[in-house]
């Protein structure tokens, strides 16, 4: 299973980025291989509009099973993510990626 986190850095100690569309990085954890990788999404901050759909499309290509984020996607992003079937958990905006993963495993994050 692959889990994507919206983060401000590229390690387990990185702070979570509470934003979805303009998240700086996606940290991707492959549970089966125990591998950590990342995708640089910093381009999205240059978009005046449409960051949500664009980032959702990228996430579709990265095809994680689960997304862990902070505030949750906006309307346009949610419309795309709904079609991808990725399970979304929110409320991890003030954690590190490691803490967010622990919170997810302990069912302390809200599914939307």
């Amino acid at each position: 299973m692959k889990i994507a986190f919206t983060t401000k850095g590229t390690t387990w100690d990185a702070e979570m980025d509470p934003r979805f569309g303009r998240a700086v990085y996606f940290l991707i954890y492959d549970n089966d291989k125990d591998e950590l990788s990342h995708y640089d999404n910093s381009d999205a901050s240059n978009d005046a509009h449409g960051a949500g759909p664009k980032t959702s499309q990228k996430l579709f290509e990265l095809h994680p099973d689960v997304l862990i984020t902070g505030n949750g996607p906006g309307g346009n992003a949610a419309a795309v993510l709904e079609k991808t079937g990725i399970k979304i958990y929110v409320g991890a905006g003030n954690m590190t990626a490691k803490e967010a993963f622990e919170a997810y495993k302990n069912n302390r994050l809200k599914a939307i």
């Binding site: 449409g50 759909p53 959702s56 499309q57 579709f60 795309v80 079609k83």
Partner: peptide, 23 residues
């Protein structure tokens, strides 16, 4: 279509195209 849209108003998800008229 997705490639030429500068405003991310056209999104391709595999075998589906989504259009965001507001964008």
């Amino acid at each position: 279509c997705q490639k030429v849209c500068n405003f991310h108003a056209v999104i391709q998800l595999g075998e589906m195209i989504m259009v965001f008229p507001e964008l």
